[in-house]
Design a binder for these strands. Structure first.
Length: 670
RNA sequence: GCCGGCGUAGCUCAGCAGGUAGAGCAUCUGAUUUGUAAUCAGAGGGUCGCAGGUUCGAUUCCUGUCGCCGGCUCCA
C-alpha cells in the first residue's frame, strides 16, 4: 500500500493526499464551496461516490450541480430515498428497479394493494423525514453468493434475479440507514440531506423487466431538483405544457374531434382543422410536382391475397382490422357448421379470403407500377398519394391525433434502379428539410434504422442491405443534422431514416420516414427492361415526410401552441366594427379581404371591441381589423396583430399587399 | 391488451357520510352603440357516460360495460 495518493486535477495540477482519502476530502482541501456543491466525482473516468477512497493514482474531477451527470446521480439517490420511504411505510413491498430518467426518477414496486394518491402524499412526507435524518448512502462490496443469500433472506426475489443476471463474483450495494439495502451499481450522494426539493408525480403500471408476460408492478414517478425554485419552475412548466397539449387546443380552437359513436382513434376533422390539413397538402403537392412525382388515387381496401404477397399479412395480423368477408362465404361457413372460434382462427390465419382495410399504400402503388411495362428510361417512377390507412392499435395506446386507428399518410413510392437509390433518398430528405424549414421545426432528431445482425426477422440479401444502409447513412450525413444509428430499428424489408419529434409532455413521435426496400419488388416480381434489353429488378423507396396528416397536425398544434403562421391559420383576419354604424364599411372590408383570397370573418355582434378582441385573441387569429369612424372615412383599417398588438391604421390596400406577400411565401412571421 | 385514476349543462368545474343537482363562461332574449384582452339584466339548458344490482329511495354504494387520462407493452 502506497503511503500517498497522487491526484491529478482537471486543470493538470497535481496533489498528494493521504492514502484512503476520498474525493470529498480532496474537495474540502480545495475549498468549502466546492465541497458543498460536490455531488459525485469522476475518478480515472469512472463515477465515484464522494466518500469512496481514491485509488493511489487518480485523475479526479469533482462534479457539482453544474454537471448533467451529477443530476442523474442526485435523482438516482432520490429514487433510493423513495424506496426507503415505501419500505418503512409498507414493509411487505418488494423492490424492482429505480433509475433516474429525464426530469426525474421512478421506482418499481410489487405490493398486493395498489398505491393511492393519498399514499403518495404519505410517502412524500416520509421521504422528507428520512431526508432530514441525514443518512449516508453507504457503498459496500459483497461476494455474489453471500449477497444472494442475504437478499433471499430479506425476501427480495427480483433483486436476486437481477444479481443472478448482472453481478460478477462481487457486486456493490448501497444501504440507507439500518433497514434499507439495495443491489445497485451507484454512485450515490453522500447523504440524504443533499436532496433539497422533490415531488412524487404519478403512479403507473409497468411490467417487470418490460416484459408483458411477467407480472405487473406499480411504478411511482417523481422528480427532484437542487432547489425548491427549480422544482416549482419545473412544475410550472408542466402546467404550461398542458395548455399547449394538442388535445386541449384542438378542442378550444375547434380543429378536430373524436367521437365514441364513430369510434376510438378515428379523427373527425372539423372545418378549421381541415383548412390546416388542406394547406399542408397544397404545400407538399407543390414540392412533389417540382420533384417530378405523379399523383395517384387508390381505394381504401384490397384483397387479403395482396397483403399475403406483400408480407404485411400475417406478419402484422394483430395490428390490422380483421378482413372483410362477403355474406355468401359467411353463410356457407355457417351452413358447414363452422363455430365462431373456428371462424376467428380461419380469419386470423388468413384462410378465408376477403378484403383488408389497407394498412399501407405500397401494394396498391406497386400494382399501378406493374400495370405498364417499364424501361430503364422511365425510372424513377414516383407515385404519390395522400393515402388513408387503417391500423388496429391497442386501445391503451390511442390518444389525440398522435396515435390513431385511421390516418392519412403523405405517402409516395419511388421505383428506381439500384444506382439511383442514393440520389432518390437524398431527394426525399431534401423534401423533409424544406418542410421542416418552412414550418420552423428545429427540434427533431434523425434516426437511421439498421438491421440487427442477430435477428432473423429481416428478409433480403445481406449485400443489398449493406448497400441500402450505406445509402441511408450517407443521405443522413448529407442532411447536416445530428443523427443516430440504431441497429434493430429497420423495417423488416429494409433500412430506414426516421424523423422524430417530442410532444409537450416529452413523448417522442415518429413523423416522416424514408425507407429503402429491396423486398417488395421481389415479392411482386417487378421488372423493368434495362439498357441490355434484359429484365431487371427495381428498388423501391417508401417515403412520407409528414408521416401522417393526423400526427403531424397534432405535433404542429403543440409546436405553434395553436398560433399557426398566417398561411396555415384557419381564420386569418377578423373584422371588428366598433358600433353598428360601421357595419356597412366593415362588410365592405370583409368582401375585399375575401376577394383577395383571405380567410376572414366579420364580428358584427353588438359587443364592445374589447370583448371581440379578447375572443379573437384567444382564438389566435393573426389579424384583428378594428373599424371605426376614422377608418370608414379614410378607407383604412386599424390593424391589431395577435403577437404585436396595435399596429395602427393603414389603407386597406396596403394591408392586403402585405399579408398576401406573407401568405405567398408561407412566412413564419405575421 | 395490462395496471391505476377519472366520467355532473356546449366548456371548465363545485356538490352529494344515499332524499332525482349548482357556479362561471358559452347560448338565447332585451337593453347598451361601444377605440385595442370580458357592458348590464333576464331566460333556456342536465334521465350526474351507459346497463344491471343493493335500497322505501342511487348522481352518490356494488358489479359490468363504454369512453377519457397517465404509464407499461406494442408500433409496417
Amino acid at each position: 500500500m502506497s503511503s500517498t495518493t497522487f491526484v491529478t486535477l482537471p486543470d493538470g495540477s497535481q496533489r498528494e493526499i493521504p492514502p484512503g482519502a476520498s474525493a470529498l476530502d480532496l474537495a474540502r482541501s480545495i475549498g468549502k464551496r466546492l465541497a458543498d456543491d460536490a455531488i459525485v466525482a469522476r475518478v480515472n473516468g469512472e463515477l465515484y461516490d464522494l466518500a469512496r477512497p481514491l485509488p493511489p493514482e487518480a485523475r479526479v474531477e469533482i462534479l457539482t450541480t453544474r454537471d448533467p451527470e451529477a443530476l442523474e446521480v442526485y435523482r438516482h439517490s432520490s429514487a433510493h430515498l423513495l424506496a426507503a420511504a415505501v419500505l418503512e411505510l409498507y414493509p411487505e413491498t418488494k423492490l424492482g428497479i429505480g433509475p433516474p430518467i429525464k426530469d426525474g426518477f421512478y421506482y418499481d414496486f410489487q405490493r398486493p394493494e395498489p398505491f393511492t394518491a393519498e399514499d403518495l402524499a404519505k410517502i412524500e412526507a416520509r421521504m422528507a423525514e428520512i431526508r432530514d435524518r441525514d443518512l449516508p448512502y453507504e457503498r459496500q462490496v459483497v461476494e455474489k453468493q453471500a449477497g444472494l443469500a442475504k437478499y433471499r433472506e430479506i425476501g427480495e426475489p427480483m433483486k436476486c434475479e437481477l444479481i443472478e443476471e448482472r453481478a460478477g463474483d462481487q457486486f456493490t450495494e448501497y444501504t440507507l440507514g439500518p433497514q434499507f439495502i439495495d443491489f445497485c451499481r451507484g454512485p450515490h450522494l453522500p447523504s440524504t440531506k443533499k436532496i433539497k426539493a422533490f415531488k412524487l408525480l404519478s403512479i403507473a403500471g409497468a411490467y417487470w423487466k418490460g416484459d408483458e408476460n411477467r407480472h405487473q408492478m406499480q411504478r411511482i414517478y417523481g422528480t427532484s431538483w437542487y432547489s425548491q425554485k427549480d422544482l416549482d419552475e419545473h412544475l410550472q412548466k408542466l402546467e404550461e405544457a398542458k395548455k399547449r397539449d394538442h388535445r386541449v387546443l384542438g378542442k378550444q380552437l375547434g380543429l378536430f374531434t373524436v367521437d365514441d359513436k364513430v369510434g376510438q382513434g378515428l379523427i373527425l376533422w372539423k372545418p378549421k382543422g381541415s383548412i390546416i390539413r388542406q394547406e399542408l397538402q397544397t404545400f407538399i403537392s407543390e414540392h412533389l410536382r417540382r420533384q417530378g412525382y405523379s399523383q395517384v388515387f387508390t381505394p381504401h381496401i384490397g384483397k387479403l391475397e395482396l397483403y399475403k404477397t406483400s408480407g404485411h399479412f400475417p406478419y402484422y395480423a394483430d395490428s390490422q382490422f380483421p378482413p372483410l368477408v362477403d355474406r355468401e362465404q359467411i353463410s356457407q361457413l355457417a351452413a358447414d357448421g363452422c363455430s365462431c372460434a373456428h371462424l376467428a382462427n380461419l380469419l386470423g390465419s388468413g384462410e378465408i379470403e376477403g378484403f383488408l382495410l389497407k394498412p399501407m399504400n405500397c401494394p396498391h402503388h406497386i400494382r399501378i407500377f406493374d400495370s405498364d411495362p417499364h424501361s430503364y428510361r422511365d425510372l424513377p417512377v414516383r407515385l404519390s398519394e395522400f393515402g388513408t390507412v387503417y391500423r388496429f392499435e391497442q386501445s391503451g395506446e390511442l390518444g389525440g391525433m398522435t396515435r390513431v386507428r385511421g390516418f392519412t399518410q403523405d405517402d409516395a413510392h419511388i421505383f428506381c434502379t439500384e444506382e439511383q437509390v442514393p440520389q432518390e433518398v437524398s431527394g426525399c430528405l431534401e423534401l423533409v428539410k424544406i418542410i421542416f424549414g418552412t414550418i420552423g421545426m428545429k427540434d427533431y432528431r434523425v434516426r437511421v434504422g439498421l438491421r440487427d445482425p442477430d435477428s432473423a426477422k429481416y428478409v433480403g440479401e445481406p449485400e443489398q442491405w449493406d448497400a441500402a444502409e450505406k445509402a441511408c447513412k450517407e443521405a443522413a450525413e448529407s442532411l447536416g443534422v445530428p443523427y443516430t444509428l440504431e441497429p434493430g430499428e429497420a423495417a423488416f424489408y429494409g433500412p430506414k431514416i426516421d424523423f422524430v419529434v417530442q410532444d409537450v409532455i416529452g413523448r417522442e413521435w415518429q413523423l416522416g420516414t424514408v425507407q429503402v426496400d429491396y423486398q417488395l419488388p421481389q415479392r411482386f416480381d417487378l421488372n423493368y427492361t434495362g439498357a441490355d434489353n434484359k429484365p431487371h429488378r427495381p428498388v423501391m423507396i417508401h417515403r412520407a415526410p409528414f408521416g401522417s396528416m393526423e400526427r403531424f397536425v397534432g405535433v404542429l398544434i403543440e409546436h405553434f401552441a395553436g398560433a399557426f403562421p398566417l398561411w396555415l391559420s384557419p381564420l386569418q383576419a377578423v373584422v371588428l366594427p366598433i358600433s353598428d354604424r360601421h357595419l356597412e364599411y366593415a362588410g365592405n372590408v370583409l368582401e375585399q379581404l375575401r376577394g383577395a383570397g383571405l380567410r376572414a370573418e366579420l364580428d358584427s355582434r353588438s359587443e364592445k371591441v374589447n370583448y371581440k378582441i379578447r375572443e379573437a385573441q384567444m382564438q389566435k387569429v393573426p389579424y384583428m381589423l378594428v373599424i371605426g369612424d376614422r377608418e370608414a372615412e379614410q378607407g383604412a383599417v386599424s390593424v391589431r396583430n395577435r403577437k404585436h398588438g396595435d399596429r395602427g391604421a393603414m389603407p386597406l390596400g396596403e394591408f392586403l399587399e402585405s399579408v398576401k406577400g406573407l401568405i405567398a411565401t408561407r412566412s413564419q412571421e405575421d
